Deep mutational scan, measured.
Amino acid sequence: AFSSEQLARLKREFNENRYLTERRRQQLSSELGLNEAQIKIWFQNKRA
């Protein structure tokens, strides 16, 4: 489960760009304390 802070950040990123570069995913992973797979799957689900 994502914290409300993490979700807000993911939604902001998604609004700016529906697709993440690998580098951006790595940055978000480290900033949010999530693993890259969690972020990747969140974006895939959000696009679906």
Rank of each mutant, 00 (worst) to 15 (best):
A1D: 14
A1L: 12
A1F: 11
A1W: 13
A1Q: 13
F2S: 02
S3V: 03
S3Q: 04
S4M: 10
S4L: 11
S4Q: 13
S4W: 09
S4I: 11
E5D: 08
E5T: 07
E5I: 08
Q6D: 04
Q6F: 02
Q6N: 04
L7I: 11
L7P: 00
A8N: 09
A8V: 08
A8W: 06
A8G: 06
A8H: 07
R9I: 13
R9M: 08
R9G: 07
R9F: 06
L10T: 00
L10G: 02
L10H: 00
L10D: 02
L10E: 01
L10S: 00
K11P: 01
K11W: 15
K11E: 15
R12M: 11
R12Q: 14
R12H: 11
E13G: 00
E13A: 10
E13K: 02
E13V: 05
E13Y: 05
E13L: 03
F14H: 03
F14P: 00
F14E: 02
N15Q: 12
N15I: 09
N15H: 12
N15T: 10
N15V: 08
N15R: 12
N15F: 09
E16R: 10
N17F: 06
N17Q: 05
N17E: 04
N17H: 10
N17P: 01
N17L: 04
R18Y: 06
R18S: 11
R18A: 13
R18F: 06
R18G: 07
R18C: 08
Y19F: 13
Y19I: 11
L20D: 12
L20M: 05
L20Y: 03
L20V: 05
L20H: 03
T21F: 03
T21M: 03
T21W: 03
E22Q: 12
E22M: 08
E22V: 13
E22L: 10
E22K: 15
E22P: 15
E22F: 10
R23S: 14
R23M: 13
R23A: 14
R23L: 14
R23E: 15
R23D: 14
R24T: 06
R24W: 03
R24H: 06
R24L: 07
R24P: 01
R25G: 12
R25N: 11
R25D: 01
Q26L: 12
Q26T: 08
Q26N: 07
Q26Y: 09
Q26R: 15
Q26A: 12
Q26P: 01
Q26K: 14
Q27G: 04
Q27M: 10
Q27T: 09
Q27E: 14
Q27C: 06
Q27P: 01
Q27D: 08
Q27H: 07
L28H: 00
L28E: 00
L28W: 01
L28K: 01
L28C: 03
L28A: 00
S29E: 04
S29L: 02
S29P: 01
S29M: 06
S29D: 01
S29V: 08
S29T: 05
S29K: 04
S30E: 14
S30I: 15
S30R: 14
S30F: 13
E31W: 04
E31I: 06
E31K: 03
E31D: 07
E31G: 02
E31S: 04
E31A: 05
E31N: 03
L32M: 07
L32I: 08
L32W: 02
L32Q: 00
L32G: 00
G33Y: 04
G33F: 04
G33E: 05
G33Q: 07
G33T: 04
G33A: 05
G33L: 05
L34D: 00
L34W: 02
L34S: 02
L34F: 03
N35P: 15
N35V: 07
N35S: 15
N35C: 06
E36C: 05
E36W: 04
E36Q: 06
A37C: 12
A37H: 13
Q38I: 13
Q38D: 14
Q38L: 15
Q38S: 09
Q38T: 11
Q38H: 07
Q38Y: 08
I39Q: 02
K40V: 14
K40L: 14
K40R: 12
K40I: 14
K40N: 14
I41N: 10
I41W: 14
I41T: 11
I41L: 13
I41V: 09
I41Y: 09
I41C: 09
W42T: 00
W42V: 01
W42L: 02
W42S: 00
W42K: 00
W42C: 01
W42N: 00
F43K: 00
F43E: 02
F43Q: 00
F43P: 02
F43W: 15
Q44D: 15
Q44W: 09
Q44K: 09
N45A: 08
N45W: 13
N45Y: 08
N45L: 13
N45C: 11
N45P: 02
N45G: 07
N45Q: 13
K46Q: 15
K46P: 04
K46E: 15
K46S: 13
K46T: 13
R47V: 12
R47N: 14
R47C: 09
R47H: 11
A48Q: 12
A48S: 09
A48N: 11
A48H: 11
A48M: 11
A48V: 10
